[in-house]
Structures are given as structure tokens and as C-alpha cells.
Amino acid sequence: MNRFEYERAGTLAEAIGAEGAFLAGGTNLLDLMKIGVQAPARLVDISRLPLTEIEPVEGGLRIGAMVRNSTLARDPQVLAKYPALAEALLSGASAQLRNAASTGGNVMQATRCSYYQDPLSPCNRRNPGSGCGALGGETRNHAVLGWTEGCIATHPSDMCVALAAYDAVVEISGPEGARSVAMAEFHPLPDAQGAGDAPLAAGEIITHIRLPDPGAMARHARYVKLRERTSFAFAIVSAAAALAVEDGRITQARLALGGVAARPWRCRTAEAALLGQPATIETFTRAAELALEGASPSGANEAKIRLARKIAIRALERAAAGTPERLPALPASLFAGDDNG
């Protein structure tokens, strides 16, 4: 069999600098190993690391990298102040996978680009310099923003889209010390040659995600996800939006898109354009136009640009209407029963 070493890291110190692939929930890495896409010589099991706290910190919340997706989604602090994060988490995968998947692992999950997942296809992300197999192939699910001919893959996470909108920061520890990177910039965009640099240097590990206080946006934040299957499917496109509105005018705005690029796509130009405007469909439509400015199809996926505009508008509309007391039974769904327009 394809042999690999296995080691369990008992402490963070043991994990930092360890050579090999970090194994947390295993919901993605083990699949990739089975299909021959990844073949690490060594697995470093970090699933028992004591990074499992969700703690209020000054100005926000700090989430341990080993907090399970299901735990995070049901945390009272998250539900109260970051409901779009809970909604994003609950719209992802299945209950069984959410029980296993970790916060850090969700950030680190690989693209679901089918050419990345097919070891016989060229892929700059998997095999730098081999080319992009997806270009000219089946590209309905591929990027419309920030792509190059080197790579047109998208990042599949729902959670990261909400985190990017909330201005989350990824805390990283490594042999060279600790550093922090904004969630919205954590995943590299492709360059002309390929997928870009790895987000983490060798031996680096995500320890926490830090969320700043959303302030007045706490109860005006939503995540919306388009997919053909009502549950257990990745987004065709998705959006996280948060707003603060005072005297009819938008005073704070956040917007991030999912399923459109190699990273959760924070739409800062659109956010700036929302400020000072009335929270109306016209305002949101203009913002959505700005959000997709520069978008272009990477293949037969022109429709995704239209869909991304529409989902941005919907997320803003829902955010403006306010987060419901309880999350809908179908989180993030267009059929959640709360679009009475």
C-alpha cells in the first residue's frame, strides 16, 4: 500500500515545524489521499490539540482552530453576534461532516475543481508547471473573478465567505514565530503561472480565527447560497452581507462572494459605494454591479456572473431586513421562507 508515517502532536509546540501534512478532521485530506491527489509521506495528527475554545476577547471573538464546524455553528456568541457565520456553516456539507470538520481545516480545504481532483489531468495547483486542465474543459463551476490562465479554480468554503465579510483574521504560528493574515487575503490568487504561493509556509499552523466585534451589524447579517440540490452541495455562487443602517442610511457595509474565485471575494468597492446610501434595491443593485466589476467568464460560465450579482443583491436585501431571531430550517437557502418581496 501507499505507506505514510503517522504522528500525533500532543501540544502546539510539537505541531509547529513538524514535517508532513496536518490532519485535523480528515474530511478532505483523506479523500484526496484515497484518490491519489495528495500523497504525504507523513501525517501529523493535530486533531487533539487544545485549540478548542471559542473565547470572547477584547473587541471580538477568538475561535480555536480545532473547534468543530458543528460546535461553532451552534455557539451562542456566534449565533448572537455573527449569525451569517452560523448560517454559512450550517449550509455547508452534511451534519456528519460538520461534526468532524475543524475550523482550521475548513480554511485549508482544497478546491473541488474536478481537474485538480483528477491526477491524470494537468493542474498547476497540484503539479506546478503542468498547466491548467480546467481551461477549455467543463467550467460551469469555475472562477469568474481573480483567475488567470494558470488556474481557474474556486475555493469551496462557505464559512470563509462569512469570515471574510466579518473582517476575520487568521492567526498563524510557525517556526519563525506568529503572524496574522486577514481572511480575505489568506488564500492566494493565482498568478500567470499557476495557483500562487501556498498560504502557509512549511511547518506553519493555523491556531485561531479572530473576529472583530460587528457592532451595529450584528443583527443585520446574512449568508445566501445558490445550489441545485437543496442541501449537501457546494455553492454555485454565494454571498455574505452585513449592514448597519442609521436614519435610513447605510453606515457600515460588508459584502463577500463565494464560489467565484480562488478565495472568498471581499467586495470593498461595493461596500464603499453602499455607505451613506439608502438601503434600497437600487442601492444594492449598484453595489452588486460594482462587486462583479472586472468579472469575466473563465469558460462556459458567463451565467455565474449574472448569478453572483443577483445573490449579492439578495444577501444585502436580507441583511437590511435583519437577521431572524432563529436561523431558518434551511440555512442560507433561497427557500428559507424569508424573502417577502
Binding site: R112, D118, T230, S231, F232
Partner: peptide, 14 residues
């Protein structure tokens, strides 16, 4: 390009 259950969708309860 979609010869697994993640890519080839069949209905779920929802």
C-alpha cells in the same frame, strides 16, 4: 469530471 457522489447529485431529504 463528476464520477462521485460529491459531483453527481441525487436528491437528498431536503
Amino acid at each position: 469530471v463528476n464520477n462521485d457522489f460529491a459531483g453527481y447529485h441525487v436528491p437528498v431529504n431536503a
